[in-house]
Design a protein around this nucleic acid. Structure first.
Lengths: 226, 226
DNA sequence: TGCTGCAGGATTATCGATAATCCTTGACGC
DNA sequence: GCGTCAAGGATTATCGATAATCCTGCAGCA
């Protein structure tokens, strides 16, 4: 699965399958409003538009439906579902809880070897200069995934992946005006706290960071810079 | 989903599609141990065995993988997810964090209408008399899923489902000697706490319950914000 | 020995076409 | 007028086959 990988994601380079690319395409179309809520989407339409067969499109539909972005009725049709702020906000406490666990478990590991997380941060900062909000959203997700991965707990990573952070991040970034460089720098405090090995401070900073992602806040999220 | 419906389930009568029937078949095979954890499952094998084509099987695989029951690697193979003791212990803080969020969110809903949860408890107690540890494990999973479902938060339910509690519970129950009636009654306190609407007490009780699930894991439950 | 690279087998990923299903529309009987 | 039912169109569901990818094992070599 690719950029919007929600399931048990293997390596970072597995974004090659057509299904995942179709899903990302649909995700962006939904996020920026070209596919408005309520509008029907037909498998063969999308397939023809993207030059693929029905199969990968079908897979993408299933995945997006599982995340509540599409609504499918068998043999009848599929349409873009109205995804309200409430539904996006629902994920915040769950994400906060998981990333709090992640921070607590990751702190000693990151303190021992912060290189991977620092690399993810560098990449995030680099991508922030490209003025490509989609690319930034993906890098941002990768950074947070790296934090969770640093906890070295497969169950935690699995649960976090299931939240579909990619989707939320893409939706947030594309409907947001926050400058990318500011957003990117907001992650530095997380790295510093984790690298210091202070688990409780890491938890607090991560919680504040996640809470700032609540959608609907059109104001730039207040990033804790540690 | 069908029999072990966990996610955004379609209608109850939608089990006509081949994909859903294949999924249910695999679910049963896993639940009763004919498909043991770690054993590989091949799409074309299952397709041939059930007399279908690869497509519905593939769909079922994807769904069960999202559910945490299967583990797929692109172009390589799929196997029933295996949970070793290490992973079993790893899952405890994650599960504790998620069920703590669940308890906090569910308390008011259960207090308003405890019937569903009480029904799940009744079923659990009933199955406990059958001396069938496998059936008990499934009922137990269903009970805990009902708790999580009571939180009425799709993201939470998705994350919890991804942990693959089914398999963990099955493994635990089959390598355990705890009397079933005692185990079943141990869930009554959860229902009572939730039904009372006392969120914090519910969180505490759920945390204790989850922590007790793993032999030797007496570490203090993780505190979570929420 | 230990390493590199290249078949060959195994498995999934994708394709193009066909079948099954559902909804709509309109005719028909009452 | 109203309910019932039967085509017909639209869409997904499924099929069978082919392509792409990954891993394994072995040969060749330093």
């Amino acid at each position: 699965m690719g950029a919007a990988d929600g399931g048990t994601s293997p390596g970072l380079l597995d974004r090659a399958t057509l299904g995942s690319r179709v899903r990302d395409y649909l995700l962006v179309e939904i996020a920026n409003g070209r596919l408005a809520p309520g509008s029907p989407v037909r498998e063969l339409d999308i397939a023809k538009r993207l030059g693929t067969s029905q199969t990968p499109v079908r897979e993408a539909f299933r995945e997006l439906a599982a995340f509540g972005l599409l609504e499918a009725r068998s043999h009848v049709g599929t349409r873009v579902r109205e995804v309200g702020e409430r539904e996006l906000a629902e994920a915040v406490p769950v994400r906060a809880a998981l990333e709090a666990v992640a921070a607590r478990l990751a702190a000693p590991h990151v303190a021992a070897d912060p290189s991977r997380l620092e690399a993810a941060l560098d990449e995030l900062v680099r991508v922030a200069t490209l003025d490509d909000r989609l690319a930034y959203a993906n890098a941002c997700t990768q950074f947070h995934r790296e934090v969770v991965r640093s906890a070295q707990n497969d169950s935690l990573l699995r649960a976090w992946n299931a939240l579909g952070i990619e989707i939320m991040t893409i939706m947030t970034m594309l409907t947001n005006e926050e400058p990318l460089d500011v957003a990117a720098e907001g992650h530095r405090g997380i790295v510093e706290a984790l690298a210091s090995g202070d688990a409780e401070r890491s938890v607090a900073i991560v919680n504040a960071h996640v809470a700032a992602y609540i959608p609907g806040a059109t104001e730039p999220p207040v990033h804790v810079t540690g």
